[in-house]
């Protein structure tokens, strides 16, 4: 518990960003997720984020960084073996943390919707597209019969499909079409926040571009805020205004997307950007060294220190707090100079 209390102090800086931005829609403060069996060994630790109404935030990180778990925790959908051990999630005026299961169900799909990485597997294989959408319209808007079917058809048209797809089963759709159907379903409840967890990772590049364009257009039309998670800086650069970089369950850097891409402050961000294959020449600039051990959020000191060439003695003992630097915040004792 002491680690938690210590963490709480570090959550303060990003909140000043929150305060500065107009009206934060989603506010995550000090979110900590741990296995039920080992509550003292968190997998996501002390994560603070905010998405302004109508705005966009991208979370970038490698597998195991806790970015998807953060989304699931926001939705109150953590898998059974895990539990939120600290922090709060607030959506608009409402605090989601601590709500009963029934109250949470009422929020999902209406105020906040999510689309996942594997669109084909995200659709019930024995239900047609039409029945899935009309079901959601009955659930969220009380629509039945022909009006529901008409709105379902309009939703499909809105995502670049058509009425023809109403009787289709998921296996008759391509990956791109399935993700469009998921998007239509997510919009059925007219949510104010859309969470997209690696929405285009399973898709081909040309289809990926179509989907990102679609998300952009839908946001412009509906004013929905976006929390997008990706391992791909290109996707983030395309669709998010703010970025948070996660490593080993913690946010290590957060900044406006241009600032982060041009002047990364955390050595991990820098290394990750250098790992993108270069446009010219044969060699990477400076790829990160392999992780020799699994980095853990609960470990003392900076989780990235073993792989960091800037690391000093202090990095191994004291966990750096997220502190203001240039346009953003960085959790590093020796940030990269501009």
């Amino acid at each position: 518990m002491s680690a938690l209390a210590e963490g709480a102090a570090h959550t303060l800086p990003p909140l000043s960003v929150v305060a500065a931005s107009p009206a934060p829609l989603l506010r995550v403060e000090g979110l900590t997720v741990a296995p039920r069996a080992a509550p003292a060994a968190p997998i996501v630790a002390d994560v603070s984020l905010s998405v302004p109404a109508g705005g966009s935030l991208g979370i970038v990180g490698e597998s195991g960084s806790g970015k998807s778990l953060t989304c699931l925790a926001v939705m109150g959908l953590l898998p059974r073996p895990l539990i939120q051990t600290g922090g709060t999630v607030r959506l608009g005026e409402r605090t989601l943390t601590g709500l009963s299961a029934r109250e949470l169900v009422a929020e999902r799909g209406r105020r906040v919707a999510i689309v996942f990485q594997d669109p084909v597997a995200s659709l019930n294989p024995v239900r047609t597209v039409g029945r899935g959408l009309t079901g959601l319209l009955r659930l969220h808007r009380g629509l039945l019969g022909t009006p529901a079917r008409d709105v379902a058809a309009r939703l499909l048209e809105g995502v670049g499909l058509s009425r023809r797809h109403l009787p289709a089963y998921p296996h008759e759709l391509s990956g791109g079409q399935s993700q469009r159907v998921m998007m239509a379903g997510a919009l059925a409840g007219e949510p104010s926040l859309l969470i997209a967890d690696e929405p285009t990772t399973a898709l081909d590049v040309t289809t990926q571009l179509q989907l990102l364009d679609l998300i952009e257009r839908l946001r412009a039309e509906t004013g929905t805020a976006l929390l997008i998670v990706s391992h791909d800086f290109g996707v983030i650069a395309r669709s998010a205004e703010q970025v948070a970089v996660m490593y080993a369950g913690r946010v290590v850097e957060t900044a406006p997307v241009r600032a982060l891409l041009r002047r990364p402050a955390h050595p991990y961000t820098l290394g990750l950007l250098a790992s993108v294959p270069p446009e010219h020449g044969r060699a990477h600039r400076a790829p990160l060294p392999p992780a020799t051990t699994v980095a853990r959020a609960g470990a003392p000191g900076c989780a990235f220190a073993p792989r960091c060439e800037r690391a000093g003695e202090i990095c191994r003992h004291a966990r750096p707090p997220l502190a203001r630097l240039r346009e953003g915040f960085v959790a590093c004792h020796h940030p990269v100079p501009a």
């Binding site: 391509s174 079409q177 590049v205 040309t206 571009l209 290109g234 650069a237 395309r238 891409l261 950007l273």
Partner: peptide, 23 residues
């Protein structure tokens, strides 16, 4: 041309190319 244009640049201000239609 379309395949390479669909690669996402690490630059939010990179020129936007309309995506290839269909599948």
């Amino acid at each position: 041309v379309a395949l390479i244009a669909a690669l996402l640049r690490l630059d939010p201000d990179a020129p936007r190319v309309p995506p290839l239609e269909g599948e």
